[in-house]
Amino acid sequence: MTEIRHLTYLDAIAEALSVEMERDPNVVVLGTDVGGSFGGAFKVTKRVATQFGPRRVRNMPMTELAFIGAASGMALMGMRPVVEVQFADFISTGFDSIVQFAATTHYRWGAAVPWVIRAPSDGGIRSGPFHSQNPEAWFVHTPGLKVVAPATPADAKGMLLASIRDDNPVIYFEAKPLYRSLKGPVPDGSEAIPIGVARIAQEGDDVTIVTYGSTVHDSVQAAAELAGDGVTVEVIDLRSLKPMDTDAILESVAKTGRALVVHAANRMAGVGAEIAAFIAEEAFGHLDAPVRRLGGMDIPIPFSPPLEDTYRVSAYDIVRTVREMVAW
């Protein structure tokens, strides 16, 4: 019988690493400051660093391009490296290794590159332009990669297990504002949650919100407030951005006739643009109002609290937008 405990989002990730490293000796962790008694800038790898030591939790010099490339080489030789980039913002320093080599290899010559990059993303914690980013659109735009963005502790664990076991390069965006602020039920054991299957975070009939990551929680909060208006909102937590569960989106929009896409990343050419276009192309006949999008402003992410709060999507923005959609 599976025991249900309540863990923080961070502890759920740490547990997934521990479970999979115990299960599979080919899993190693690479990253800057991940090992030793330090255990990572956010302490996500502290548990496995203590449990498995420096042979399997390996500190890297500050050379993301090289150690992500090295992860590809290890993966080609049958290992399953899990790379931590200290902040998702720094993933740009490893871009060629990801989008040119790893993403294209299986299509070009048939060799699998099974690595995971864990990318602590998202802001709201007063960290400024270079420690707050959500760069998932770059990778959703890249054929050959898989991209996931869990929003709950249970998904954080189950989807990291699935990502490590996947035979493709997977970018795993973990929303760092949830690390210690969010606690939830997490099954014991080693069961993976499949990549590519959305979750209905809340059922409703009037408006569909398609979202992922930290804005799932803002959307659920907005839905609670909108219930007071007599409006029921269905919140779809995509969980996986590439592949994307488009059936779940279509099914919900067919029911509600209204779709709002919400993400923390800036709106311009973001993942929401693709989802909105998809709904317009595939579900136009079901729509009672134009598809709407909410995302960050098209500016570098500012530091100072009133500026960052203005930049970010809030539950209030979601409530206001849904009210406009219902009144349309």
Binding site: I68, L76, M77, D96, F101
Partner: peptide, 20 residues
């Protein structure tokens, strides 16, 4: 191991094989 046009990309990949 096959290469990509971004030539130095083979360097860390081969290194990763060596690390394996």
């Amino acid at each position: 191991i096959g290469f990509v046009s971004h030539l130095p990309q083979s360097l860390p990949v081969a290194l990763g094989a060596a690390m394996a």
